[in-house]
Design a protein around this nucleic acid. Structure first.
Lengths: 123, 123
DNA sequence: GAATTATATAAGCATGAACAGATATATTGA
DNA sequence: TCAATATATCTGTTCATGCTTATATAATTC
């Protein structure tokens, strides 16, 4: 999860995801699509692809000398679900998802109850 | 949007979001909650709060000498929606958040042209 | 097996960002 | 006004990461 969010923090990696959204493309095609927009080298794109893959946000399969990349929906879903818990801590639409529950528990353990002063208090 | 994803890329900022999820807390309470988990200074937390706020992920209001922070749901929703377009480029669900999350949770993948051969030339 | 194409990795550099400590600002109360 | 509390900002340092150039690996074709 850490890796996924870190990967998404980079504008060019999100660019790659937009390019890949809905289609499977070879690394070279991704490089071309990127270079049509901005100046970037082939190695730079290759490195970004590696980061995205290790983060579980895209998948890769070999086809001849090409490497075909596609969005990994499970990875995207995991990120969306984490965000859902932030927006909806009570789990109005939380699923029995172990990894998710773990994350929440990790951050939630003991928020000092504390007398929050005597002014406005809200849930 | 850039700012939001960049902000989420930092583990400690996500930590802050988990702490804030569901409750409004003063900066000092957030510092205490953070320090209960890991070693971090007050200025560091303050800086993270600034980044999160400028990214539209949290909101702030003054109450006496305190600054009360809370999750900004609009900001979170915007990120979720961007991710939804990646997972679903055809826009099958450009609906409200809860409907969206339900869809995602239900698991709605598919989409694989699978046209391999030796030359999947796309742009 | 040599040449060619497609992609990944290595090395080195440069920018950015997160951090701690010190200090400034602001609000409250005596 | 002064002191105390709560929080933000400034400064310098350190560490991570994205980039380019050069090179290596792997599959394909001749």
């Amino acid at each position: 999860m850490d890796a996924a969010f870190a990967a998404l923090g980079e504008p060019r990696r999100r660019e790659i995801l937009t390019i890949l959204s809905g289609c499977e493309l070879a690394a070279g095609a991704i490089v071309e699509a990127m270079q049509a927009i901005e100046s970037i080298s082939q190695p730079a794109v290759s490195q970004h692809l590696k980061v995205l893959r290790e983060a579980g946000l895209i998948s890769m399969r070999a086809a001849g000398t090409r490497r075909l990349y596609a969005v990994d929906h499970d990875g995207i879903d995991a990120v969306v679900k984490w965000l859902a818990t932030i927006g909806d801590p009570l789990g109005a639409f939380a699923q029995p998802l172990d990894a998710l529950a773990t994350e929440v528990a990790r951050g939630k353990r003991q928020l000092s109850p504390k007398r929050e002063s005597r002014d406005s208090r809200s849930a």
